[in-house]
Structures are given as structure tokens and as C-alpha cells.
Simulated assay, not measured.
Amino acid sequence: MTTLNIRLTSLQEVKNNTLEALRGKESARGHFLSFLSWDLLHDTLSPNRMDIIKEMTGAGELSIREVARRVNRDVRAVHSDVTKLITQGVIDKTESGIVFPYDDIHFEFTLTHKAA
């Protein structure tokens, strides 16, 4: 089972995690997608894009047209969302379609009140 771990993190944490992964540390292993802010995470993983990901989970390789049918949306709009997800490394483009190469997603973050 392959899990995509999504987290909110600081730039320093991204650097530290990258160095740990390069050194082969066990805690750095896995598939991670890190965002520097809630706004960046929400921009990438908007509700419509999360619908796409949910439909693609476990489905193997699909065409954009098939994804659009499954989420009941316009092909052009889905194409735009898929392009963003490919650019951000969430889904992969293949020779004949697209694929979400993970079995599940684990979200790992804490939201706190920002002092004024």
C-alpha cells in the first residue's frame, strides 16, 4: 500500500526532511507533498480537485474524459484541474492518460490561531 502524506510545513522543515531523505533516514522515507501554507494547500487541493483524486484512487490509468464523466463535470474544467495536479506532483501523466499512483492520502497538519 502506497500512501501520499500531505503536510503543512516550513521551508526549513522541507530542507531538513530533504537532507534526512538523502542520508537514508527511515523517518524521511515515503511519499510526501509539503505545502508552506494553508492557502497553498487549499489552492492545489480545492474541493473539485479532491473529487478528482477520490475518483482516481485505486482506478488505475484513466483518460481525462473518463475522469470528467466520473466527477460529472465539463472536460475542459477537469483538464485545467488535472494540469494543476500534474504540475504539483499529485497525479502522473502517462502515455495514454493520467494516474493517481497512491492507494490513499494521509493529511498531517495543525491549524492554529495566528496572534495579531
Rank of each mutant, 00 (worst) to 15 (best):
D51V: 00
I86K: 11
D74S: 14
S10V: 04
I53K: 05
T110C: 07
N16V: 14
M56Q: 01
V71H: 09
E55A: 12
T18W: 12
T3K: 08
M1A: 09
L85A: 09
I64Q: 11
I6R: 11
G60I: 00
K54D: 13
G89D: 02
A28Y: 08
I52T: 04
R73P: 09
Y102I: 00
V71G: 07
E95R: 10
S27R: 13
A21W: 11
V71D: 06
T94N: 07
L41I: 00
T3E: 01
A68L: 13
R76A: 14
T9K: 01
D74I: 13
L41D: 03
A68R: 05
D92T: 15
R23W: 01
L62T: 04
F100Q: 02
H42F: 05
T44E: 05
E20T: 01
Q88G: 02
H79E: 14
L22A: 12
N16K: 15
L33W: 00
T83F: 09
R69D: 12
A21I: 07
V71F: 05
I86G: 09
F32T: 10
E95F: 05
V99F: 08
D104R: 14
A77L: 15
I53V: 15
V14R: 14
T3P: 02
S96V: 14
Y102C: 04
R76P: 09
I98F: 13
T18G: 13
D81A: 12
L45S: 03
V14A: 10
L33H: 00
A77E: 14
F32K: 06
I52M: 06
G60E: 08
R70Q: 15
I53T: 06
F107V: 00
R73L: 14
V71K: 07
T94W: 02
F100M: 03
I105E: 01
T94P: 08
T2E: 15
G24S: 04
S27G: 03
R73V: 11
R7F: 04
D81P: 05
L33Q: 04
S37C: 09
H113E: 13
T87V: 06
D103G: 12
K114Q: 13
L40A: 10
V82I: 15
I6N: 12
R70V: 00
T94V: 11
R70F: 07
H79S: 15
F35L: 08
F100L: 00
I6D: 03
M50D: 01
T57D: 08
